[in-house]
Amino acid sequence: SPEVQIAILTEQINNLNEHLRVHKKDHHSRRGLLKMVGKRRRLLAYLRNKDVARYREIVEKLG
């Protein structure tokens, strides 16, 4: 489901952010981070168009 995919991506994004705080010059990982953020944004847009209630619920849960 989109909610699960968004939750997994959010966790991976948070982990990668911590990694990049330590390894500032790791541009390869930064590119992966940007791809993940874009994918999460697309999934959220899809969910917002399909079911606003589910969209609001996941945004509330994940912050």
Rank of each mutant, 00 (worst) to 15 (best):
S1Q: 07
S1R: 07
S1F: 15
P2G: 03
P2S: 05
P2D: 05
P2K: 06
P2N: 03
P2I: 15
P2Q: 06
P2H: 07
E3T: 04
E3K: 02
E3W: 06
E3H: 03
E3N: 03
V4Q: 12
V4T: 09
V4N: 11
V4D: 14
V4M: 13
V4H: 13
V4E: 14
Q5N: 05
I6T: 01
I6S: 00
I6W: 03
A7C: 15
A7I: 14
A7S: 07
A7W: 15
A7M: 15
A7P: 02
I8Q: 10
L9V: 02
L9E: 00
L9M: 04
L9D: 00
T10N: 04
T10D: 02
T10I: 13
T10Q: 03
T10P: 00
E11Q: 11
E11S: 08
E11F: 07
E11H: 08
E11L: 10
Q12A: 11
Q12F: 09
Q12L: 14
Q12M: 15
Q12S: 06
I13V: 01
I13C: 02
I13W: 01
I13S: 00
N14L: 09
N14V: 06
N14G: 04
N14C: 09
N15A: 14
N15V: 12
N15S: 12
N15C: 14
N15M: 13
L16P: 01
L16C: 07
L16V: 04
L16S: 01
L16H: 02
L16I: 07
N17T: 14
N17E: 10
N17I: 15
E18L: 11
E18W: 08
E18K: 10
E18M: 09
H19Y: 14
H19N: 03
H19G: 02
H19A: 05
H19P: 01
H19M: 05
L20I: 08
L20Q: 02
L20G: 02
L20M: 06
L20K: 02
R21N: 06
R21T: 05
V22H: 13
V22N: 11
H23M: 04
H23F: 06
H23N: 11
H23S: 05
H23A: 05
K24Q: 10
K24Y: 08
K24C: 13
K24F: 08
K24N: 12
K24P: 15
K25P: 05
K25V: 05
K25F: 11
D26S: 05
D26W: 03
D26V: 03
H27W: 12
H27E: 09
H28W: 07
H28P: 06
H28E: 13
S29A: 14
S29F: 07
R30T: 05
R30N: 06
R30E: 04
R30Q: 06
R31K: 12
R31M: 11
R31D: 07
G32Y: 15
G32L: 15
G32Q: 15
L33Q: 02
L33I: 05
L33F: 05
L33G: 01
L33H: 03
L33V: 04
L33P: 00
L33R: 04
L33E: 01
L34A: 10
L34P: 01
L34Q: 10
K35E: 13
K35A: 12
K35I: 13
K35H: 08
K35P: 01
M36I: 08
V37C: 12
V37A: 04
V37N: 03
V37E: 07
G38T: 12
G38K: 14
G38F: 12
G38Y: 14
G38C: 15
K39H: 08
K39N: 04
K39R: 11
K39G: 02
R40G: 01
R40F: 11
R40K: 03
R40I: 14
R40P: 00
R40S: 02
R41C: 15
R41V: 05
R41F: 09
R42I: 10
L43W: 04
L43P: 00
L43Y: 02
L43A: 02
L43G: 00
L44K: 00
L44A: 00
L44P: 00
L44W: 03
L44H: 00
A45E: 13
A45M: 10
A45I: 10
A45Q: 11
A45C: 14
Y46V: 11
L47E: 00
L47R: 00
L47H: 00
L47Q: 00
R48T: 00
R48Y: 13
R48C: 09
N49T: 12
N49G: 08
N49A: 13
K50V: 15
K50I: 15
K50E: 11
D51P: 00
D51G: 02
V52Y: 15
V52I: 14
A53Y: 07
R54K: 14
R54V: 07
R54F: 04
R54Y: 04
Y55R: 01
Y55D: 01
Y55M: 02
Y55I: 02
Y55Q: 02
Y55C: 03
R56S: 06
R56E: 11
R56Q: 13
R56W: 15
R56L: 15
R56G: 04
E57Q: 09
E57F: 04
E57T: 05
E57L: 06
I58H: 01
I58F: 05
V59C: 13
V59P: 00
V59R: 03
V59Y: 04
E60K: 12
E60S: 11
E60W: 05
E60P: 02
K61N: 07
K61C: 09
K61L: 12
G63I: 15
G63T: 12
G63E: 08
